[in-house]
């Protein structure tokens, strides 16, 4: 039995600088795309023949739902990298991804409820999509609770990484089983393969918004990562220099 641990130099200053450069382009782009997408969705798309104008919330609801699910995978992949290669940056990315994803999931549920009132006449229906979203929210909350329960935060993030990996394998199974449980739900309207049942005039702004929210997610992740980097390296020379420059 023999093993070796190698010191992994955290290249934090490099990550901090690189993410700063990236954000200079990404952040304006994301905000512009979201503003344009909202205007497109609200003003330049036809009303739905059954739901009238209330359907327009899908331009927020659908992108937020899609990205909140993707966010769980981002968290799990970052967690796996931090577990296997002990990369500090991945560790921080996982910690940052958790709250962003949870907030997006919550937004998805909130917009779903707001959409539900005019559509179904009630804020809450145990529909398959909503139910899956609730399970996803609890998966996120579990990660939070576990993180908070550990005093040693290095170990906390490793434990959360394991939990989110288990969740990742389980998510497709949860979605499938909830779909099966609720076989009366609306069929998925957007398919990237095969024919789309949604009119192109409504589809394009939706796809636009999905890309926009993905971009926004990336920006939030990078911003959070930068803050966490500065916090954890507060005692190093480069971090002090950065803070002094901002002041």
């Amino acid at each position: 039995m023999a093993w070796t641990w190698f010191h992994r130099l955290g290249s934090s200053p490099w990550v901090y600088r690189f993410s700063g450069t990236l954000l200079r382009f990404l952040l304006p782009l994301a905000i512009a795309m979201i503003v344009l997408g909202c205007i497109w969705g609200i003003a330049f798309t036809p009303p739905d023949f059954r739901q009238g104008n209330s359907y327009r919330i899908i331009y927020i609801h659908v992108p937020v739902s899609v990205v909140s699910l993707a966010g769980y995978y981002v968290m799990a992949v970052a967690g796996a990298v931090s577990l296997i290669w002990r990369l500090k940056v991945a560790d921080m990315a996982m910690r940052v991804a958790a709250p962003i994803g949870a907030v997006l999931t919550f937004l998805a549920l909130l917009t779903g409820a707001v959409w539900g009132k005019p559509t179904w006449g009630t804020f809450w229906v145990w529909d398959a999509r909503i139910t899956s979203m609730v399970v996803l929210l609890f998966l996120y909350l579990g990660v939070f609770a576990l993180y908070e329960a550990f005093d040693n935060k290095t170990l906390a993030s490793k434990a959360c990484a394991i939990l989110s990996l288990v969740g990742t394998v389980n998510i497709p199974i949860i979605y499938k089983s909830v779909d099966w449980w609720y076989s009366l739900h609306q069929p998925a309207s957007i398919k990237f393969t095969g024919e789309s049942t949604i009119d192109p005039s409504m589809l394009y702004p939706l796809l636009w918004m999905i890309v926009a929210v993905y971009l926004l997610y990336a920006c939030l992740l990078l911003l959070g990562l930068r803050v966490t980097l500065l916090e954890s390296e507060a005692k190093t020379a480069w971090a002090r220099k950065v803070v002094m420059e901002v002041k």
Binding site: V135, F138, L139, L141, G142, A145, L146, A149, F150, A159, I162, L163, V166, G167, N170, I173, I174, K176, S177, V178, W180, W181
Partner: peptide, 26 residues
């Protein structure tokens, strides 16, 4: 995951029950 924490069943139920949804449904 929780054996060293001594936080008891509440935490454990929050971690496990969402994962066990498919088993319940099936």
């Amino acid at each position: 995951l929780t054996v060293a924490l001594r936080r008891g069943g509440m935490l454990l139920s929050l971690l496990l029950l969402p994962l066990e949804v498919p088993v319940l449904i099936l």
